[in-house]
């Protein structure tokens, strides 16, 4: 059981809530309270738009513990339009083939259950191909 670990980062996981540096204005994700660019204190909340593009990707057919029931799936590095790169699963691909540079948008999905079917459900960001319309 890893309840505190998941609970602590729920805002960034559910809604891509990061930080913006008040000194150099760089956007920070995940939030770390210290700017990785200028080293200044950066605690101001910033909600990312959720739009970005695939920087690189790979498909998993043999998932790690907790992900066995959802294989196969594709994990990608997503370059957010504000700059940071995050690692996340792609979802709702349908028959679409994944390509580097493919525009994607964030959705909040069920990631896995903590342990067996009695465990808490863990939700967080995934990305899907852009194209439904405005948000």
């Amino acid at each position: 059981m890893e309840i505190p670990r998941h609970w602590r980062i729920k805002s960034q996981r559910y809604g891509l809530v990061g930080e913006v540096c008040p000194h150099c204005e760089i956007k920070i994700f995940p939030p770390r309270d210290v700017c990785p660019n200028c080293g200044g204190e950066a605690k101001e909340e910033y909600i990312f738009s959720g739009r970005g593009e695939v920087y690189s990707f790979t498909s998993l057919y043999d998932g790690p513990a907790g992900f066995e029931e959802t294989t196969p799936y594709t994990v990608a590095l997503i370059k957010l339009e504000e700059g940071p790169v995050v690692t996340a699963q792609l979802t709702d691909l349908g028959d679409a083939s994944v390509e580097i540079g493919m525009p994607v948008e964030m959705v909040t999905r069920r990631i896995r259950s903590d342990g067996d079917e009695r465990g808490m459900l863990i939700y967080g960001y995934k990305f899907r191909p852009l194209g439904l319309g405005p948000r």
Binding site: E69, T70, D92, V107, T108, R109, I111
Partner: peptide, 16 residues
């Protein structure tokens, strides 16, 4: 889909 339930679907509808 496998990663969807009433919580995730409600989040997207509510964001809209």
């Amino acid at each position: 889909g496998l990663d969807e339930d009433v919580i995730t679907m409600s989040i997207e509808a509510a964001r809209n």
